[in-house]
């Protein structure tokens, strides 16, 4: 097996051969198929792709928060030296919030509507640290300061519905930081927010990540966001990683036809989540059950040839570079340059 996306030695998170199975009477379907990646401490890896590509499922699978109808298989998952390939319920509970924490897309629905900010923060703090209620409150204030919430002590008593969208997401981030995690899984944390607020939240995340030396797995469909927050990027298509490498490298010289299509479609901004709007790439993302036998992108690919239809191209590390690619007929660098 080829380790993908330039895994630095002693990566914080190392995932190899992760698959997510939709259990079905007529045979399981792989929603995510044999995905590998790693994240180092102090590094942000963005997973980018259209909706239905399996990005969010991947993050939820790491946390083991998928509904019971979905199965998770992996060759190897290690997090901060701990083996999490098939963790017990207790093991994963100890890891959740304290080693890796998650930030969700819609902070209004992700926060409990009937509990105050204080209750929800203090609960997260006291779950991972034995400290008194008063100390926990002080720490909660400290966390709210950290995420730049003005007049923090007044906010503690508020309920989520009384806060603005950006404020809610800051509370979510504060909650994620409560257990002093090493890795943050951010699942489209700015999608539900408007543009100016989303910029502020991105800046905050970048800053926290740098100051606290966090590893971050950032899931997004927005190339602009990838450019602004991530060090490395993995492009997902129909449940598989098709290309990965450093953000600058991949964006300057995309080699997979799909990556190129993405960048062509919206060179500067975001592309909308559904495939229909991608004018430059005809067709839509196949659902996992209707994936072609070969390369999943083959039916939409102008460069496809006979071999693409028969075998799934493996993700291969390019010699001497930190890039990986899953394509039999990639774009040549000079073609794009």
């Amino acid at each position: 097996m080829t380790p993908s996306a330039s895994a630095p030695k002693g990566a914080l998170l190392d995932v190899e051969g992760l698959s997510i199975l939709i259990k079905d009477k007529r045979g399981d379907v792989r929603a995510v198929d044999d995905v590998s990646f790693s994240v180092a401490a102090g590094e942000t890896l963005a997973i980018v792709g259209e909706s239905g590509a399996g990005k969010s499922l991947t993050a939820l699978a790491l946390m083991r928060l998928l509904p019971k109808t979905l199965g998770v298989e992996a060759k190897r998952i290690t997090l901060a030296g701990q083996d999490l390939t098939s963790p017990s319920e207790l093991d994963i509970r100890k890891v959740r919030g304290s080693v890796m924490a998650m930030i969700f897309q819609d902070p209004l629905s992700a926060l409990n509507p009937v509990l105050t900010v204080e209750r929800q923060l203090v609960e997260a703090i006291r779950l991972h640290e034995t400290i008194s209620r008063t100390d926990a409150r002080a720490r909660a204030l400290e966390l709210l300061d950290m995420v730049r919430i003005p007049a923090a002590s007044a906010r503690l008593g508020e309920y989520p519905h009384r806060l603005s969208g950006g404020m809610r997401q800051r509370v979510m981030i504060a909650m994620a930081l409560a257990g002093r995690p090493k890795l943050i899984l951010a699942d489209e944390p700015t999608t539900a927010l408007d543009v100016t607020i989303s910029g502020q939240i991105l800046d905050l995340l970048k800053e926290l990540q740098r100051d606290l030396g966090l590893g971050m797995l950032f899931i997004t469909h927005d190339l602009h966001v990838v450019r602004s927050v991530a060090h490395r990027v993995a492009v997902m298509y129909s449940g598989r990683v098709v290309e990965s490498g450093s953000v600058a490298d991949v964006f300057e010289r995309p080699r997979h036809p799909y990556t190129e299509g993405l960048i062509q479609a919206r060179p500067h901004g975001s592309f909308v989540t559904d495939g229909h709007r991608l004018r430059e790439i005809a067709g839509t993302v196949p659902v996992p059950a209707a994936r072609p036998p070969g390369c999943a992108f083959e039916p939409r690919c102008v460069r496809a040839e006979a071999d693409c239809r028969q075998v799934v191209p493996p993700l291969v590390r390019e010699a001497g570079t930190p890039r990986s690619l899953a394509c039999f007929h990639p774009l040549q660098q000079e073609q794009y340059a």
Binding site: R93, R96, M102, F104, N112, A124, A178
Partner: peptide, 20 residues
């Protein structure tokens, strides 16, 4: 979603049920 958040914090099932 907030139930998923509660699990993501590291709470056990009984805490999630009773507290959230």
């Amino acid at each position: 979603d907030y139930i998923r958040t509660a699990y993501a914090k590291g709470l056990g099932t009984s805490h999630v049920i009773i507290g959230h």
